[in-house]
Design a protein around this nucleic acid. Structure first.
Length: 551
RNA sequence: GUGCCCGUAGCUCAAUGGAUAGAGCAUCAGCCUUCUAAGCUGAGGGUUACUGGUUCGAGUCCAGUCGGGCAUACCA
């Protein structure tokens, strides 16, 4: 609906011979008396034009010409806002778009023909997924869903490394537990993985091989078995949250020679070297970030000859450019915050357009159980497992809790609260509104023969009560909310919005008789209910939560 | 020490530089012979951590102070 105003305001600005590159901001005023929408454009332009904002607003209003039956009146208010009062039947006529566009309501073709990659989760297969990982997983999945609606060809990718030091430690950990199974006393190092799952993997090996592996020094079978089992568990856990990936990118492929006989890692070194940003000293290969004003250079190849994580990270991003993505979204946790700037600098030096990369960093999750905060560490094995959480509170609540807070805020996941399968759980409030419409439709079919499938939305325009207009207007905000979520990479705004829609629907349901109303009104109210259901469904699809037909 | 995030109602958190800072939970008072009460209506609750600055206007931007989290690896 906001987009409706833009061309008319642009026309008025042209008529007034005003040129500006300022964004025309359309807002919903906080108070009803200020109209349905407002713009602050006169306030923004007043200074550079050296004019009084109120005069400017008045002049623009004089030049605005909206089609008949849309905007009832415009006024100047406060310091120079222009407030628009809409014809309520215009709002309700437009609500019909929800019905005609259906699942596509809120979609736009802006990303058509463009490929986007969203990288998320990207946990190395060293252990089961923790609660903390879940947040980034759900965030990434929602962002990918949002991009889907905008016509992008979206690829969901999981980047992992199964060849690093941590995997070595994992393999050793399994071996120690396996030796214990064989009845051999071992001194299990504190530095190794303590979790129960290690013992379970060892047991699997013991069942299959008996003592047969006890004297093998090669860790390969321990590593491979562990990786297989753990990756399987990670995928299963993600699947429970409806998180799936189109591709799993193994970091190790960047070490292997490709076309031209050199590895992607080596290609990065050579390209940076050609730009004068590589130096070898202290037996290591360094990225000369001090030339960029940083305090220290960064190691790309360790003195052992192995690349540090930075080098493959850079090479990995080069592959994203080479694979033809025009938009790259990286989702990761706050602990990786220092990793991105170096990658970004390297890519810039190599001539890539880093403006195509957007980074969504989510802050940590702390879990409280019984009022006690649990600190997470995969290594110590005391982490909250994502699977356990899903067992406790269900997939829908898990997803919603992860994204109902801004990614920039620390998330305090109160497991006791989320465990309550009661009205305290915010997911129920949203789903209940959906179930309520479904129930109403069943009743409407039975009582008055109303068929949801053949509803046209033509009756909507006769609705004129305050709550109906407010509800209709809220439904029309949905496309704007998607845009807002994408601008900030913040699906949390969708949760808030859907809450508002549900609240208005409950209020409408309470205030307005539907099945008992006169036939014409009844049809209109049923149609409005259908539109509410459609918007809720579309929103739930983005959030990845289910839309129950009854509760 | 330095960089990033945060500090808003009793608690958990919202709020593109806009008009009287909003929700949920908790507390209190109402509403089911009527389409799902997992709902609705109302009340109380605030010096937006603090001090300055920028401007028509600051919770939001800038500087500083205090407090919390995360990073500051030849781990990923």
């Amino acid at each position: 609906m906001r987009a409706f105003f833009i061309p008319f305001i642009q026309d008025a600005l042209r008529s007034a011979a005003i040129e500006t590159d300022k964004d025309i901001l359309i807002e919903k005023p906080t108070e009803k008396k200020f109209g349905d929408f407002s713009t602050n454009i006169a306030l923004l332009l007043a200074k550079e034009l050296k004019r009084s904002p109120r005069d400017l607003a008045a002049e623009l209003i004089g030049l605005l010409s909206f089609p008949a039956g849309t905007v009832l009146k415009c006024d100047v208010a406060g310091p120079g806002f222009i407030n628009f009062h809409l014809d309520s039947s215009f709002i309700m006529r437009t609500v019909r778009d929800v019905m005609t566009e259906g699942d596509a309501f809120g979609s736009s073709p802006v990303g058509k023909g463009q490929r986007a990659i969203v990288e998320y989760v990207s946990a190395n297969p060293t252990g089961p997924l923790t609660v903390g990982r879940g947040r980034g997983g759900v965030l990434g999945d929602c962002i990918a869903n949002l991009l889907d609606t905008q016509g992008y060809d979206v690829q969901r990718e999981y980047y992992f490394n199964d060849a690093g030091r941590q995997m070595q430690i994992l393999a050793e950990s399994v071996r120690y537990r396996y030796l214990e199974q064989c009845g051999i006393a071992v001194d299990f190092p504190e530095t190794h993985y303590q979790g129960d799952y290690i013992g379970n993997i060892a047991e699997t090996l013991f069942i299959e091989h008996g003592n047969g592996l006890a004297s093998i020094d090669n860790l390969a079978i321990f590593k491979e078995t562990a990786e297989g089992i753990i990756f399987d568990s990670i995928r299963k856990t993600l699947a429970r949250l409806s998180i799936t990936h189109d591709s799993f990118f193994n970091e190790h492929t960047l070490y292997r020679a490709g076309e031209g006989g050199i590895s992607p890692n080596q290609a990065v070194i050579e390209a940076l070297d050609a730009k004068g940003f590589i130096s070898i000293y202290d037996s290591a290969t360094w990225f000369l970030t001090t030339k960029l004003g940083q305090e220290k250079d960064k190691v790309l190849i360790k003195s052992s000859g192995d690349p540090s994580y930075r080098l493959p990270d850079i090479a990995y991003h080069v592959t994203k450019f080479n694979r033809g993505f025009s938009l790259m979204v990286n989702v990761f946790g706050a602990d990786h915050i220092d990793e991105y700037p170096d990658v970004n600098e390297a890519l810039k030096i190599l001539g890539y357009d880093t403006g195509r990369i957007r980074v969504a960093i989510n802050q940590f999750v702390t879990t409280t159980v019984g009022g006690q905060t649990i600190k997470m560490s995969t290594r110590k094995g005391n982490a909250d497992l994502l699977d356990d959480l899903i067992d406790d509170v269900g997939a829908d609540a898990t997803r919603l809790f992860f994204i109902m807070r801004s990614k920039d805020s620390h998330l305090n996941f109160d497991v006791d609260l989320a465990k309550k399968q009661s009205k305290d759980n915010p997911v129920f409030y949203l789903q209940y509104a959906h179930a309520r419409v479904c129930s109403l439709m069943r009743m409407a079919d039975k009582e008055v023969g109303f068929k949801a499938d053949s509803a046209t939305g033509q009756a909507l325009a006769i609705l004129d009560s305050e709550v109906e207009i407010e509800l209709g207007s809220a439904l029309l905000d949905y496309p704007d909310v998607i845009q807002s979520c994408l601008r900030f990479l913040e699906p949390q705004k969708m949760v808030e919005y859907l809450h508002d829609v549900a609240e208005l629907y409950h209020k409408f349901y309470h205030e307005c008789p539907i099945l008992k109303a006169d036939p014409e009104i009844r049809t209109a109210r049923l149609e409005l209910s259908l539109c509410v259901r459609q918007v809720l469904r579309n929103g739930f699809t983005i959030l990845g939560i289910s839309a129950p037909e009854s509760m």
